[in-house]
Lab assay of single mutants.
Amino acid sequence: DDVELRDGDWRVELKDADEEILRAVEEAIKNGASEQELRELAERLIR
């Protein structure tokens, strides 16, 4: 699993992620995405 989400800690570690993925995830976090939404976003972007 390349995506690590810690309970109560919104730092997201994406291994080997490019800047576009990181920006998309950071934007989702700023917009108040839930953990499930972040997982789905990350899975779509990593593929």
Rank of each mutant, 00 (worst) to 15 (best):
W10H: 05
I46E: 04
K30C: 03
S34C: 03
L45P: 04
G8I: 12
K30L: 11
E20A: 13
D18L: 09
R6G: 15
R11H: 06
E20S: 12
I46V: 12
L14V: 06
E20Y: 08
R6A: 15
D9K: 01
E20D: 11
A33H: 04
D7M: 03
L22N: 05
E4Q: 14
L14M: 09
A28L: 07
R44F: 02
L14A: 01
L41M: 08
E13K: 13
E27G: 05
D18Q: 08
V3R: 13
A24M: 14
G8K: 08
G8Q: 07
D16K: 08
Q36C: 06
R47N: 15
W10S: 06
R39S: 05
L14Q: 02
E27L: 06
D16G: 14
E37T: 06
A28W: 03
R6N: 14
W10M: 06
L5N: 15
A28N: 01
I29R: 07
L22K: 12
E19A: 07
E40N: 08
E13D: 12
A28M: 07
V12R: 09
L22G: 03
N31C: 03
A42N: 04
R6H: 09
L5W: 13
I21R: 01
I21Q: 03
L45E: 04
A17E: 05
E43F: 00
L45G: 06
V12S: 15
Q36N: 12
L14W: 04
D2E: 15
G32H: 03
R44G: 11
L38Q: 04
E40L: 08
R39D: 02
G8C: 13
N31G: 11
E4H: 15
D9R: 01
G32A: 02
E35Q: 07
R11V: 11
K15H: 09
E19P: 15
E4I: 14
R11G: 10
N31R: 13
G8M: 13
E19R: 06
V25A: 01
E26M: 09
D16A: 06
E27V: 11
K15P: 05
E13G: 13
R11P: 09
D16Q: 08
I46F: 02
Q36H: 11
K15I: 13
E4W: 01
V25T: 01
R47D: 11
D1A: 14
V3S: 12
E43I: 05
W10K: 05
D16L: 05
N31S: 12
L5R: 11
D2K: 11
L41H: 00
R23C: 05
L41D: 00
W10C: 06
V12N: 08
N31I: 06
R44W: 01
R6M: 14
R23L: 10
E13W: 04
D2V: 14
G8P: 15
E40V: 07
R39T: 03
D7W: 01
R44S: 14
V12W: 07
E35Y: 07
E40F: 03
L38N: 00
S34N: 09
E43V: 04
A42G: 04
E20K: 11
E4A: 14
L38S: 03
A17D: 03
K30S: 09
E26L: 10
L41T: 00
K30V: 09
E19G: 08
I29P: 00
L22Y: 06
I46S: 06
E19I: 10
R47E: 13
R6D: 14
G32D: 02
I21D: 02
V3Y: 14
I29V: 10
E20I: 09
G32W: 00
R39E: 04
V3K: 14
D9N: 03
E35I: 12
R39Q: 10
E19W: 08
A17Q: 08
A33F: 12
E13R: 11
K15G: 07
E13Q: 10
D16W: 10
G8H: 10
L14F: 08
L45F: 00
I46D: 05
V25F: 14
L22P: 01
I29L: 14
L14I: 10
D18A: 09
L41F: 02
E40M: 06
K15E: 12
E20R: 10
E4R: 09
L41V: 01
R23S: 09
D7A: 02
E4S: 11
S34P: 03
L5I: 15
L14K: 00
D2N: 15
L38G: 04
I29H: 09
E35D: 12
D9I: 00
D1G: 11
R47H: 14
E13H: 10
L38W: 15
I21Y: 03
R6K: 10
A33C: 03
L45I: 10
R11Q: 11
G8W: 14
L22E: 02
E27Y: 01
L5Y: 11
V12L: 10
R44C: 05
L14C: 05
R23T: 06
E20W: 11
L38K: 01
E20P: 07
S34A: 04
E27P: 00
E26A: 12
L38A: 15
A24T: 09
I21H: 03
E26Q: 07
E19S: 06
V25W: 07
G8E: 14
L45D: 03
E19F: 05
I29G: 08
K15A: 09
E35R: 06
R44I: 04
W10G: 04
E4Y: 02
G32T: 01
E20G: 13
V25Q: 01
L38T: 04
E4F: 03
W10I: 09
K30M: 11
V25R: 01
E13N: 15
D18Y: 06
E20N: 14
E37P: 00
I21N: 01
L41E: 00
R39V: 07
D18T: 14
L22W: 12
V12Y: 05
N31K: 12
G32C: 03
S34G: 10
I46L: 11
E40Y: 02
A24P: 01
G32M: 02
Q36F: 02
A28H: 03
D2S: 13
E27W: 00
L22A: 05
L45R: 03
N31W: 02
E43T: 07
A33R: 05
S34K: 05
R11F: 15
S34Q: 04
E4G: 15
L14S: 02
L41W: 01
D2W: 09
D1N: 13
L14P: 01
E35A: 11
I21L: 09
E26C: 07
R23N: 07
L41Y: 01
D1I: 12
D7L: 04
A28T: 01
A24R: 11
V3C: 04
Q36M: 11
E37Q: 10
R11C: 07
V3D: 13
L41C: 01
E43Y: 00
E4L: 12
V12G: 12
D1V: 12
K30Y: 06
